[in-house]
Design a protein around this nucleic acid. Structure first.
Lengths: 237, 237
DNA sequence: AGACAGTTGGACAGGCTTGTCTAATTTGTC
DNA sequence: GACAAATTAGACAAGCCTGTCCAACTGTCT
């Protein structure tokens, strides 16, 4: 999205094209923040321009319209989020060394790089708040994002089950339960669009993976409460 | 909230007071819908008045201000939601006959009466979209709602564990995992503020409770994939 | 130096919304 | 029937925001 010119053709020279691109991006970022904070109706082009360090006219030159700007923001965020989701998905531990630790590490990468970061939180809130008004935008996101994400993750879990690490009937259901458990203790924070603490993320992830392994693990790990370092849950201290 | 006059003092006579109250409520409901659809900034008092079947001036007579109206809406929704949450919480199966079925029934009540119903979805979206702008409102909701809800549910799970039905270290964590699992397959629907199908709710709830019992049950139920009518997961057919 | 593309600040019309005011009207009560 | 309270429709000023237009400015390229 932020390309148009490749870094090879024009190196680092402060050419006018490069500056134009920089402004374009700057506007997109500022617009993301403002739309997210104020909602579509409450967002103010003047504020976007100021926050982007650009004159209002430049915003109109680049994006033409408030609505077009909004659509550009959502499309950009969708693409960036999907890219990082699939990049992270490729690191799924298909051949885990230590199943629990590897799943925890994977879930942490996913949370940090795709869900709790700026793009993830912004997209989440924009879709939720103003998505209804643009059904086409919403279906694009829906099919391209969650749709592919769930089936990809389900495929990984199916592979893990086939290799004998887990036991499950429905890999898609397992994927939903995995994500739900891993984020179980972050829901209230998520809801307000805040960024959870690093410690909160670690704790929720670790606890979620342990519960997931008790539900889907092959050799049932120790139940919580039994004296086993694995079974005790994680408080982050 | 909708009181002010008790049903005893004035029976069912169409007194002017009663009509005034009816209009007051009508405005509150219409405002809830409009604020939720359009967001605070996009909401239009004329639209609220029309949708409430009332003149604009009446809205101002009752609530004085757009901001005051918004606050009244959120306060009302918060109170009503909390009331139904705690009413439902009282039906927690402390002495379950069939643990799985009773937990499923409880979770279904909670979902239907408190989370997926009109008030639940509206409050959820209002808090998420415009909550930031009114920190005091948000903390009231936070302390009075989720705070007390989690500890109440944790207490019930602790009781269940103490009675030998479940095994857990941290009842609060178990409560979070329970809710997360039960709603695992409804997340995408939730995010858009839509009302999930009855079938979707049933399916997600049943599957979630089964996974929960595999993770926290005492006598480990059959793993999924093993030939057992209990272990097979639910597709709603 | 001159052409040129992009940016800037400001002015400005048009539209929409909030909140107020007023006169007319309804509806129950005395 | 007269009175009081509430409601209604409409007009209205004030403010904000969008989107456009324009003249001046900056930097690069020829």
């Amino acid at each position: 999205m932020h390309s148009g010119i490749s870094p090879d053709t024009i190196p680092t020279s402060p050419s006018p094209l490069r500056e134009r691109q920089a402004k374009r991006i700057s506007i997109l970022e500022a617009a993301g923040d403002v739309f997210c904070r104020e909602g579509y109706a409450g967002a103010n082009i003047d504020l976007v321009a100021t926050e982007a360090g650009v004159s209002r006219q430049t915003v109109y030159n680049h994006y033409g319209d408030k609505e077009k700007l909004f659509i550009a923001v959502v499309r950009d965020l969708t693409e960036r989020c999907n890219a990082s989701i699939f990049a992270t998905m490729a690191t799924f531990p298909d051949r885990p060394n230590n199943l629990e630790d590897d799943l925890v590490a994977f879930a942490l990468r996913m949370n940090r790089n795709c869900i709790c970061n700026r793009e993830g939180r912004l997209l989440h809130k924009l879709i939720q708040a103003d998505g209804e008004r643009y059904p086409e935008l919403l279906t694009i996101w829906r099919e391209q994002g969650p749709g592919r994400t769930w089936s990809a993750m389900a495929a990984h879990f199916a592979r893990l089950a086939h290799a004998g690490y887990l036991v499950m009937d429905d890999p898609d259901l397992a994927a939903h339960h995995f994500v739900a458990l891993v984020n179980a203790q972050l829901r209230t924070t998520f809801m307000l669009g805040e960024a959870p603490t690093e410690a909160e993320v670690t704790q929720s992830t670790r606890n979620g993976v342990r519960a997931f392994l008790r539900a889907y693990g092959k050799c049932r790990s120790a139940a919580p409460g039994e004296t086993s370092s694995q079974g005790r849950h994680y408080h982050g201290n």
